[in-house]
């Protein structure tokens, strides 16, 4: 039976993941954390489970899981619904702040084609810095009020930055620093930990059940799941940032979502991005 075997496969992979988790809990020596091996096993799990899906196609979320949907998506890309957001982002990006500086002054290469390097581990602060966080810090450093992490302005800015980076392979680094490794490990642990009244982890939906329908929605695979962010969703009639997606997923499980850009979410994004290294940036994305 298809479902059974799918469950067994997922179970096997999950128990593997749990085993590695167990063996790398903080009490154990930190040198057992092996992100390189993790990333390899993670990719293998998805490519084994979906042998027909090309590696670079996993970044298209639910569309990669279903041929009919894939066709719909290609049609949709003729008139992408995120176009307005992209335009807005481009304009915002070039418009100077009150002090005359621009976003370009805050980023390497003027912020063009750099999406694939986020999030990164900041050695000075000892924490993970996501693109959304970096954008708001840029605003604040230039005397501007930060934007909401879940609304249109942040979506527009990240959409534009993703667009200028399309096709570049995700390139997340874990520096040789125990704090970076700990951030990665915490993110991984968060991802596999069940919570909320419904007892779901991120992995329950995006590792155990990708390609399955949850009600009418087809679940995206965790591999490459952040490469398409931000996304336009018809259901939202608008754009959603990574922060919006994470908090929405957490409220769906009747858990209490953390605040956007909470350390835990930053670590999860670090983990998910790292294990998706090598897969192309495809954002902004459009979803049913």
């Amino acid at each position: 039976m298809k479902l059974r075997s799918a469950i067994y496969l997922a179970s096997a992979a999950l128990s593997l993941a749990l085993l590695t988790l167990a063996s790398t809990l903080p009490s154990d020596a930190a040198d057992k954390v092996d992100p390189v091996a993790d990333a390899k096993a993670f990719k293998k799990f998805f490519t084994d489970k979906f042998p027909k899906v090309k590696l670079e196609d996993f970044v298209n979320g639910p569309y990669s899981m279903n041929e009919d949907l894939y066709k719909q998506w290609q049609d949709k890309e003729q008139f992408p619904p995120y176009e307005f957001s992209l335009e807005m982002g481009k304009e915002m990006f070039s418009k100077p702040f009150k002090n005359g500086k621009t976003y370009a002054d805050c980023f390497e290469n003027g912020g063009i084609g750099v999406r694939q390097n986020y999030p990164y581990f900041d050695a000075k602060e000892g924490k993970v810095i996501t693109l959304e966080l970096a954008l708001n810090r840029c605003r604040e450093a230039n005397g501007e009020a930060p934007y909401s992490y879940v609304r249109d302005e942040m979506a527009a800015l990240t959409a534009y930055m993703a667009f200028t980076s399309r096709g570049k392979p995700m390139d997340i680094k874990i520096p040789d620093d125990p704090r970076a490794l700990a951030a990665y490990e915490n993110g991984k642990e968060y991802f596999y930990t069940r919570r909320g009244q419904l007892n779901f982890s991120c992995a329950t939906c995006h590792v155990q059940s990708p390609g399955e329908r949850i009600r009418a929605e087809i679940l995206a695979p965790a591999l490459g799941i952040v490469n398409a962010m931000p996304i336009y969703r018809s259901e939202w009639s608008g754009m959603g940032t990574t922060s919006r997606r994470f908090t929405t997923c957490n409220s769906q499980i009747r858990g209490v979502p953390l605040s956007p850009q909470d350390d835990e979410y930053r670590n999860v994004e670090y983990y998910l991005s790292y294990v998706s290294n090598g897969l192309p940036i495809s954002g902004p994305g459009a979803r049913p």
Binding site: A10, S11, L14, Q197, N199, Q208, S209
Partner: peptide
């Protein structure tokens, strides 16, 4: 259902008082 299958995705309706 996690008693029968610890890895099930089915929520524990009774245990979690759903």
């Amino acid at each position: 259902e996690t008693e029968r299958n610890p890895l099930t995705v089915m929520p524990p309706f009774g245990r979690n008082r759903i």
